[in-house]
Each structure stands twice: as C-alpha cells, then as structure tokens.
Design a protein around this nucleic acid. Structure first.
Lengths: 193, 193
DNA sequence: AGGTACATGTAAGCTGTTACATGATTTT
DNA sequence: AAAATCATGTAACAGCTTACATGTACCT
C-alpha cells in the first residue's frame, strides 16, 4: 500500500499531523501490519493537499514547534474507500528470520540460537504493543476483529519459536535423521535486544 | 531483503537460471516469506557477476531458449553468509486485508464478506503451496523448522478467518455492544478467486 | 550536559515494479 | 487456435529509505 493511501486511512479516524500519523504506524493499531516513514509521509501529505483530498491548518503551540493538522475531505473519503475496492495483494508473512534460518546449517550454531532469541523478543514486543493500543478505549466490532487476528498470528509464531528453539539446537548439533521424533525441551526465555 | 541477497540465497542450494530463481520464490520454499520479480532478478544477477560473487555459463537446450546458469562462487558464499549476520529487520505480517477490514464499517457489508472469503482462499492456496514443496524430498532439520513455522502461522490465520467470518457479519449489521459475547456460527467455505 | 520527544521537511540514491519486446514449444 | 510455459532482458516510472538540516523543551 502506498503512503498516500496509508495517510488517508489514518485520517479516516480523525485529523492528525504528519508526526502523529507516523506514530499511528509505529505504535498504533496499524503497527503490526504496515510500515511508513517520515520520508514518505510528508511528501504524501503535500500531494494529497494538491489533489484536495485533505485540508491543512497550522496549529500554534507554545513550547513546541508549530503543527500542521490535516483533515480528510469528502472527496478524499470517497477516493480512499474507492481505492480500497481494487483487488488488494494477498497477505504475507515477511520473515527475514526464516530466510536466514534456512541457511542455519552454514552458520555457527551459537549465532542461530542468538537469532532465534532475538526474534522471540521481537515477537514479545510486538504482542505487547498490540495489547497496549487497545487499553484506552473499548474496541468497536471491526477493529476487534483486526486486533484479535494480530494477536492470534503473532502468538502462534512466538509459541512456535519457544517450543522449537531447543529442537533446533539438538538437530543442528546431532544432525539426526529427520524422521526421528524430537522430544520437546522446556523453552528458554529470551535475553536480547 | 534486497534482490541480490535473495538471489545468492537461492544459489546456495545449487546452480540455477534467473527463471528458475523466480520460481523458487513463487512456488518454492521461500514463497511464503519473500517476494522478488524478474525485473529485480535479472539486473541483480548481472551485478553479482560484476562483483564476481556468481559465475555464469550458457546452456544450450533444444526446443527451448538458451539458459544462463548461474553458480555462486566461494567469495559469494562468504559475502552472503557475512551479510546475514548484520541485524535483520523484525518479522512482520503484511496484511492489506486487515488494513481494509479496519474500515469495514464504511464499506458495504457484502463487500467485506467477499473480501474475507477471497482471503480465506488466498490462505488456503498458500498453505497448499507450502505442503506441496515438501513432497519431493525429506526435509533436513533446519528446513523443517522453517516449513512448520510457516504452516503454523498461516493455519492460525486461516482458522481465525473461518471462525470469525460469521461474527463480522452479525456485528456489522447489529452494531451490538462490544462487551456482549458473540456466539460462533459455523464457518462458510470460500468461493472466490 | 546529554538524550529524548516534539515537529517538519528536502534530496540523493537506491530499488523495485510494470510494461514492453521477442520467440519457440507444448498443452488445451 | 489460443493460452500457457520456458527464457531473457530493458526502460520508464514510481516509490521508499536514509541521511541531512533545524530548532525547542523537558527530563535525568
């Protein structure tokens, strides 16, 4: 999804500055599923202004820099909702961890374990963030669906890593027959990043 | 992950042409976690040749176009493995479905259900593809770890959609209190795409 | 004194996507 | 006869990331 669509989506929930939009994608409800950086947001907002899909007014604040508060226009809403209709890309787990892990037999075993541990922490943080952004308000129907989907998926990933971390060590060291069942060892808690 | 790294990764498993590398990322073991298109692969391979991280020889075939078969060099292996060590990005579920769904209350209900059904099919196809590319060979240890991780995550997503599809219809139509528990309806099978 | 949060933006460079161009062979 | 598979590549365009540039105020 391009930055313009993402910005419009953020503004569907209410007016916001570029800085605030960024935070929505960093810690907010969109953080588990989308990415967007300042370098994309500011040019996107400028273009949306040109297209008259948003309006902007400057809010003076004391003790803080001025803020440009953007609001979506009716035209912007229509364009946004219309754009959503066009066939979206299939969902995909972007996992550099798995890519790297698939070359695990060429890497020092200690590095592989460190990698898994770091990702266990990553997943823990991600899940904590999702729980966090639901604290303030009771979620409306659709958002709860999205919220719980995220938790289900990320928690599965985390559980998998915790449960099979030990197997990975054993298998790498013993290189045993793939058909032989591996008994589970208790998961070890993460310690990095 | 950039296209060059992805190509080197593909070549770690053995020599291949650009066309074959593409297939590895489309249907093969990397398909659930990475993306890369012809437009990235061919320029990437050319650059890897310049850097002497791969070599290339032309294989003549009858009835078919000539093939450029690339192999990774020792220098390429070293560079690749070294590059993997640098801190990789955290895993993330890229989900346009969830983004769109979070605006579900602004969309026609029928469209929302169609969307969910299309994604149910997407997930089914993705899981089938993962099962598929394990058929030929017994997976070595590390690959099985990666394989099962993918299945666990995607199956959780699919189950969630199947189980909660019906809730979404009810909740959108009745706009009931979020605290009220919603009884599960049996999931309806997908029918699109 | 130094780091972090607030706040906006630009510019260069890199990367990637899409569409085009070509063409034989096999399958439907 | 049409469509899909095999096979490689280019070029234009769009897009994003990174780093830079600037400045206040609060917290430790």
């Amino acid at each position: 999804m391009d930055a313009r669509t993402l910005c419009l989506g953020a503004l569907m929930h209410g007016e916001a500055s570029g800085y605030e939009i960024r935070k929505l994608f960093e810690d907010g409800p969109f953080s588990p599923i989308c990415d967007v950086s300042y370098g994309s947001i500011y040019p996107a907002l400028t273009r949306l202004l040109d297209e008259e899909w948003v309006t902007c007014c400057v809010a003076k604040q004391d003790g803080r820099p001025d803020k440009k508060v953007y609001s979506i226009t009716p035209g912007g809403r229509a364009a946004f909702l219309n754009g959503l209709a066009s066939t979206p890309a299939p969902d995909k787990m972007q996992s550099e961890m798995l890519f790297i892990l698939s070359f695990g037999d060429h890497l020092p075993r200690a590095d592989v374990i460190k990698l898994v541990d770091r990702y266990i922490s990553n997943y823990e943080a991600r899940i904590a963030a999702i729980h966090n952004c639901a604290d303030d308000t009771v979620l409306p129907a659709v958002r709860r669906f999205v919220h719980n989907f995220g938790i289900a998926v990320y928690e599965t990933a985390l559980d998998y890593l915790r449960t099979h971390r030990a197997d990975l060590t054993e298998e790498l060291s013993l290189a045993r027959d793939p058909a032989t069942p591996i008994k589970n060892r208790p998961a070890v808690s993460a310690g990095m990043q």
